[in-house]
Design a protein around this nucleic acid. Structure first.
Lengths: 284, 284
DNA sequence: GCCAGTATGAGGGCAGTACCACATTTTCTG
DNA sequence: CAGAAAATGTGGTACTGCCCTCATACTGGC
């Protein structure tokens, strides 16, 4: 339990309490917040008041800590305390925090298009995770093939959705599977639609920062009758190392703002259907 | 969202609101609780008050719902609401709550035997999840092949552990993968050890309540040089539908109490090494 | 239709939490 | 060391949630 034992205290002794929940001396802010995270690893939910007495600070300070940790996406706030983000949600929290409204609008627009009995392939990533959440909440009787832990977890809450998972090597930081096994798994299926995200999109196509992840998305696109790319406008004209697909392979782009310039021209030329999901159209 | 659309309402119309968070008519308790779970799939944390207005019931009713869902292990309660349990932790929370000390002792004893560079196969289940937690905390430079989401999540926190995941169909209630794809994935690997749990063990062998899960465990045992079964004493002389393995296929049984009677005799006869992990020996 | 059991709502008392403003302490930096 | 900036504590108020009890409404037999 990441101890602050290296911190010298006023009397020169090293502090190392037997119980991690009883501190006699005041800790630095950083250490205190680490302790909070450590506590959260052990318990699914925490009370601010309990943390206050455990860490020998006032409730206000704990509340401020929780606020900061929440802004960093490391915890979920609750009334009276905090809860831990589930599975691999935390790993991508920095990206998940931003553009949430836009991504939810995109996810909502995608889920509204999916009919019962469809078979989907769902790529990993922050935006596609939102899609998984909406699919779980609003769709039924579909089959989803994915390589992303967080998405599978979300989909698993809906008993009418059949979730097929790929084989592969776990990318711990991202919470999805990669590698030759993953590609092979995908090639063993056929789907109505592939839904993938992107690190960046430009006139030349869609990109991912991770070469292996890009290969997975490419396999999904090839195996599906329809390829849907979900990307908010912050991805426009962003480049990344790996090219997953060209626009002529992509049937639809679901985004939150109308593209312009060379990107718009490329989409027109490739015949890619562009769906702009307004944040206000969430009821769709 | 498993909708309550089939439920007739007072005026005979079918209820299906555009927004999942605005109900005009009162729902049955079961449907209401399903809605709560669906909401929790979409949001990491919920406020009881918000649920009350969304589902058109009083706060007291929501509070009673949350209490029930909590008792079923489906949610984590927070002051003022609920939070989503970690990945698939919830599904097995009822089982995970019991025998924790015994299972941790068993898990500790197993993890202490694992050396760097080993390749392990880890079955799904409550006890093996504890093993995964101990492996993540105390071991390094190992490869673990698993089909269990919670275990993979736990192992993923240790960057020195390579996690390989099987393909398969998700068993939502249990949080692991099953089916022919899973078996095929396992057959593609060889391992130093297989570590599997059991629903019950008796003189005749080890059993699992789920036939398909049993088939996965059996495949792991066949593919590993050494087969280790982890089971606390509550499993002794418990039968279940599916026989995973006979004792002559199992090299070690790690448990918390010395077996006796016909079980002990069968273990002796089969040459299965029995390791009794005392709760007090946790420092091992 | 009646009855028992269940589910729900309302009110009150109590306790816990949030939020704000300001004072105080600690830490950083030159 | 001094001043500034950050971090923390305090007190007060308004709000929110919890729990208990009791009355009412619904549900499923018989």
């Amino acid at each position: 339990m990441s101890s602050g034992a290296h911190l010298p205290t006023k009397d020169g002794s090293l502090q190392r309490s037997a119980s991690p929940m009883q501190e006699k001396d005041r800790l630095s802010k950083a250490v205190r917040q680490q302790r909070i995270m450590a506590q959260l690893a052990a318990a699914p939910t925490l009370r601010a008041t309990e943390l206050a007495v455990a860490l020998s600070v006032s409730g206000e300070t704990i509340r401020r800590d929780l606020l900061e940790l929440h802004e960093q996406g490391l915890i979920n706030r609750t009334y009276g305390g905090a809860s831990r983000p589930f599975a691999f949600e935390a790993a991508r929290s920095d990206r998940r925090r931003i553009m949430v409204a836009e991504r939810e609008a995109i996810a909502s627009a995608v889920s509204a298009r999916i009919l019962p009995k469809e078979v989907l392939m769902l790529g990993g990533g922050a935006t596609t995770y939102h899609v998984a959440r909406f699919l779980a909440a609003r769709n039924r009787d579909i089959t989803v093939i994915t390589h992303d832990f967080a998405s599978a977890s979300a989909l698993g809450t809906n008993p009418t959705i059949r979730v097929l998972f790929c084989a592969g090597r776990l990318h711990p930081g991202e919470g999805y599977l990669l590698g030759a096994q993953t590609i092979a798994s995908i090639n063993g299926y056929e789907a109505n639609r592939a839904i993938v995200g992107a690190t960046g999109i430009s006139a030349r196509g869609i990109y991912d920062a991770d070469e292996e992840a890009g290969a997975v998305y490419n396999a999904m696109i090839e195996r599906a009758a329809e390829a849907i790319v979900v990307a908010d406008h912050s991805k426009f004209d962003q480049l990344a190392v790996s090219v997953c697909a060209r626009w002529n392979e992509v049937d639809r782009l679901v985004t939150d703002k109308q593209p312009s310039g060379t990107l718009a021209a490329a989409l027109r030329k490739a015949g890619t259907d562009v769906i702009v999901a307004g944040v206000s159209e969430m009821s769709e």
